[in-house]
């Protein structure tokens, strides 16, 4: 009787404890597995999102390229031909009134040709491909602020030679959008684009004296349906795996684009 009871108690405790420990271990391993699974799904989602953004950006670039080519090759050619025809008119046979109209027409045509070429260059950005990122940014800034009251300047780190062709285009488009927005909405009179490459970290700063956006503004606007330009910026930043920061300090507004894992060329 004595031994039976002792055995029963020892057996009972062992079985119960073993059962409970098994449950606890099962819960622990189950949690670990679920967490791994959840992380894998999250990674897959992020990869999918990056692919979607990449596809959208690529199709946008292709479309820009197509429009730029059409403008340059077709519209540009027709306009040049129209100019030739216009210049072929003998001025001597025109009276004063027609001469003035002729001059006005030729002036307007020249203006249209210049603008079409400008748009085509903006969309295509051959300079970016041929002369590199820094030169592309300088050329764009000169083009966009030339003939305006904005005092523009660049101070770019020459050790940064680009982040790869696709990434350069994305970075260039972000700058284009930000500078255009600054001119359009911020009423800035001074604008500077500078960059620094240090310890594998590339920081591009757009500094202006206009009424720029704060980080909260950017976060809010870029999530709105109508904020297409800012949404594009957000997507391109995601694609670049970088970071964008907006800051307003007194009279000055700052926009910083930060890219990690960038290397300077070895001398």
């Amino acid at each position: 009787m004595n031994t039976d009871l002792t055995t029963l108690i020892i057996l009972g405790i062992s079985v119960m404890l073993g059962l409970m420990l098994s449950v606890l271990l099962a819960v622990f391993f189950n949690f670990r597995k679920k967490n791994q699974h959840r992380r894998a799904i999250q990674e897959l989602k992020e990869q999918q999102q990056a692919l979607q953004i990449e596809a959208a950006v690529l199709s946008e670039e292709t479309e820009r390229h197509r429009i730029a080519e059409t403008l340059h090759d077709e519209v540009g050619a027709i306009l040049s031909s129209a100019k030739l025809h216009l210049l072929g008119i003998k001025q001597g046979s025109l009276d004063e009134k027609d001469k003035k109209l002729h001059e006005k027409g030729a002036g307007l045509l020249n203006d249209v040709i210049k603008r079409v070429r400008g748009i085509s260059h903006n969309l295509h950005s051959n300079i970016l491909k041929e002369f590199g990122f820094n030169e592309g940014v300088r050329h764009f800034l000169k083009q966009v602020t030339g003939g305006t009251l904005i005092e523009a300047d660049t101070n770019l780190d020459e050790s940064f030679t680009g982040a790869g062709q696709e990434n350069d285009i994305s970075l260039y488009r972000i700058i284009q959008e930000l500078v255009n927005n600054t001119i359009k909405y911020a009423a800035a009179t001074r604008l500077e684009i500078s960059s620094v490459l240090a310890a594998g970290r590339y920081t591009l700063t757009i500094r202006h004296n206009g009424n720029g956006l704060s980080q909260a503004d950017f976060d809010a606007f870029s999530l709105r349906k109508e904020g297409l330009g800012l949404k594009n910026i957000r997507n391109r930043i995601l694609l670049l795996k970088g970071d964008i920061r907006f800051e307003k300090t007194g009279q000055e507004s700052l926009i910083q684009i930060i890219l990690s894992n960038q290397t300077a060329p070895t001398p």
Binding site: L5, L8, G12, I13, M16, L17, M20, V23, L24
Partner: peptide
């Protein structure tokens, strides 16, 4: 759960033991 699984049998048979 660990406490109850150990003490269940102990308290159930403590007095007879």
């Amino acid at each position: 759960s660990l406490f109850e699984s150990i003490n269940f049998f102990i308290y159930l048979f403590l007095f007879p033991v």
